[in-house]
Simulated assay, not measured.
Amino acid sequence: MNDEALLRYSRQIMLEAIDIEGQERLLASRVLVVGAGGLGSPVALYLAAAGVGRLTLADADRVELSNLQRQIAHGMVDLDRNKAESARETALGLNPGCTIHVLTDHLEGAAMDDAVANVDLVLDCTDRFSSRYAINAACRKAGVPLVSGAAIRFSGQLAVFDPRDPESPCYACLYPPGEGGDEELRCAENGVVAPLVGLIGCFQALEAIKWLSGAGRPHRGLSTFDGMSGQWRHFQVPRDPACPVCATR
């Protein structure tokens, strides 16, 4: 790091849990963020600002007026722009030293596998079960840790899955395929209070920084937040021996 980088990241470097070594690990890290909307906006901005060396932002959607209530990486001038490209520009405005690539097509199949296999960590910031299952399967296949977030109405949740840990469950252990809905859990149909996506997205970014820098203890289990009461709850999530994705065969 040069003097400018030392100054930029000085508040993190002075933390004993991160220090110079942790910051250098952040600068060398590669992260995929799938979704540049409500959750992906704070994730992309905080990871870029914190010094993640290479970010890949994936989103095929375009910015709409109704997004601006909560998707803070975008503004009025970005209406009808691709969300990944808009978020990239905003993030680079915070830290031009971060390398940010964008994927503007819907990730699926081989494209999903390739994108996941070339990073150190994946953050799922999507709002569809189908996308979450596909990301989870690709992470299990590639052995890449996954930070999953969700927010709807006044409720949010976060879980971290590590395929390298034989005791770690996967997303399909938590929500077995066929037992959850899709459309009924999206913000467009149910609404969401604006700061909630920022809160969960920041939680995702924090876990990512911990993972990448080596600081602290990785999150385990499922954390849920009730915005109406202001209460957090934490649940242990065991690995499902019959899981169709991660069960040992």
Rank of each mutant, 00 (worst) to 15 (best):
R153F: 02
N136A: 14
C139E: 01
I135D: 05
L123P: 02
S86N: 06
K141S: 10
V160K: 01
K141F: 02
G75T: 12
D114W: 02
A138I: 03
S86I: 08
P96W: 04
L92E: 08
F154R: 04
F129R: 09
D78M: 03
F161Q: 08
S130V: 10
P166V: 00
G156K: 01
C139T: 08
L107I: 14
S155Q: 14
C125P: 15
A137E: 12
T90N: 11
L94A: 02
V122I: 13
E85H: 02
P169I: 05
G75P: 03
D78A: 06
E167M: 03
D78E: 12
C125D: 13
V102S: 14
G149E: 09
A172G: 04
G93W: 08
A111C: 08
L79T: 10
S86Q: 06
A115E: 04
L79M: 10
V77S: 12
A150E: 03
L79Y: 11
K83R: 13
R140P: 00
N95Q: 12
L121W: 06
L107W: 13
A142Y: 03
E167G: 14
L103N: 15
C98A: 11
D120W: 01
V144I: 11
A151L: 02
A117M: 09
D162R: 14
G97L: 14
T90S: 15
G93C: 09
S155M: 11
A117N: 11
D78F: 05
P169E: 07
D114H: 06
G149Q: 12
P169D: 09
V147Q: 02
S86Y: 05
A172D: 11
V144H: 04
G75L: 09
T126Y: 02
G149C: 12
I135Q: 01
E85K: 03
S168I: 07
L146I: 15
S131E: 08
S130A: 14
C125F: 13
A159I: 07
S148D: 14
A115K: 07
R81K: 13
M112Y: 07
D124P: 03
G97T: 13
K83M: 04
I100F: 00
D124A: 05
L123Y: 01
Y171E: 10
R128A: 07
R128K: 14
L103K: 12
A151G: 02
N136Q: 11
V77N: 09
D105Q: 13
P145Y: 10
K83W: 06
K141R: 15
E167S: 12
A137G: 02
L79I: 12
F161P: 05
D78P: 07
L123K: 01
V102G: 09
G109R: 11
D127S: 15
A142D: 08
S148P: 01
R81S: 15
E89V: 13
C125K: 15
S131N: 07
T99R: 15
V77F: 03
T104F: 04
I135C: 04
R81N: 12
R132L: 01
D162V: 05
L158H: 06
F161E: 10
A91L: 07
N136V: 07
A84S: 15
N82T: 00
D120C: 08
A111E: 11
L94R: 05
V147R: 04
P96F: 00
